[in-house]
């Protein structure tokens, strides 16, 4: 499995998430401009770009936390439903990890992870609990299962949020700047979980500022600026040999620090 990461693009699965000519405005601001992006099964796509470039919005439109005006987004060939039960079903299959964790504050860690499987997947409580504990063990917070989110560090909360998404057995995971709200010493514990997830073959779309993660775990890097995809390439190519001036400028600013 790890070998395929070394030679990205050679072992692509079927197209899973496909965006075609997606456009979105916030008032006068054109936040997504003719976005075309295809993410294949098992692929890890990292979206980077300056603040306000529309990368978070892009991530949120894929499970329709944001609406869009034109274009199509399909997952497994099915177009995104715009509302109702069909949309809820789709969201159940698309994992989402937020910048601010968003664990349910009034529920314990274990309840956070079992809620989706029990309420949406209709699993029996003991079965959901067992699976939840297994996932919490995998992200290293199983000994905190009975605590409430506020009692955990940010890094632990974010790892629980990842376990909560995984409990739904998603076909694709979206990460919206998962480490941006974390103290520096907690970033790595979250990135380690994400890296092992990437190695396990999970399809991932990751919006991040962590260039180290992009280099290490991505099959493809997508660079966005002013609402448009400016450049996409393998991490190796993108970081060593960026094509566009905008990307050169962006990377140049990163390296001066």
């Amino acid at each position: 499995m790890t070998d395929t990461r070394e030679s990205p693009g050679t072992d692509l699965g079927a197209p899973l998430v496909v965006l075609e000519d997606v456009n979105k405005h916030f008032g006068d601001l054109h936040v997504l401009k003719d976005i075309n992006l295809t993410v294949h099964e098992g692929e890890v796509v990292v979206v980077i770009g300056p603040s306000g470039s529309g990368k978070s919005t892009l991530c949120r439109t894929i499970n329709r936390l944001e609406s869009y005006e034109s274009g199509t987004i399909t997952i497994h060939g099915d177009e995104l439903p715009s509302e109702g039960k069909a949309l809820a079903r789709l969201r159940a299959d698309v994992g989402m990890v937020f910048q601010s964790f968003n664990l349910f504050s009034h529920k314990t860690i274990l309840e956070n992870v079992t809620m989706g499987p029990i309420k949406v997947r209709r699993k029996k409580a003991p079965e959901a609990k067992e699976r939840a504990m297994e996932l919490l063990r995998r992200v290293g917070v199983d000994h905190q299962a009975e605590k409430y989110p506020a009692q955990l560090s940010g890094g632990q909360q974010q790892r629980v949020a990842i376990a909560r998404s995984l409990a739904m057995d998603p076909t694709v995971m979206l990460f919206d700047e998962p480490t941006s709200a974390l103290d520096p010493e907690m970033i790595n514990e979250v990135l380690d979980v994400m890296t092992s997830l990437a190695k396990s073959g999970m399809t991932m779309i990751v919006v991040t500022h962590e260039m180290g993660f992009a280099r290490k775990a991505a099959d493809r890097v997508v660079f966005m600026s002013d609402g448009a995809i400016v450049e996409e390439n393998t991490p190796e190519e993108f970081f060593t040999n960026p094509q566009s001036d905008r990307a050169k400028d962006f990377l140049g600013k990163l390296l001066t620090h």
Binding site: G84, K85, A88, R91, A92, F98, L103, G116, S165, M168
Partner: peptide
């Protein structure tokens, strides 16, 4: 607002 976004994102109606 993140609480309801998280609820929706795990597929709750």
């Amino acid at each position: 607002v993140g609480q309801s976004e998280a609820a929706r994102s795990i597929g709750l109606g």
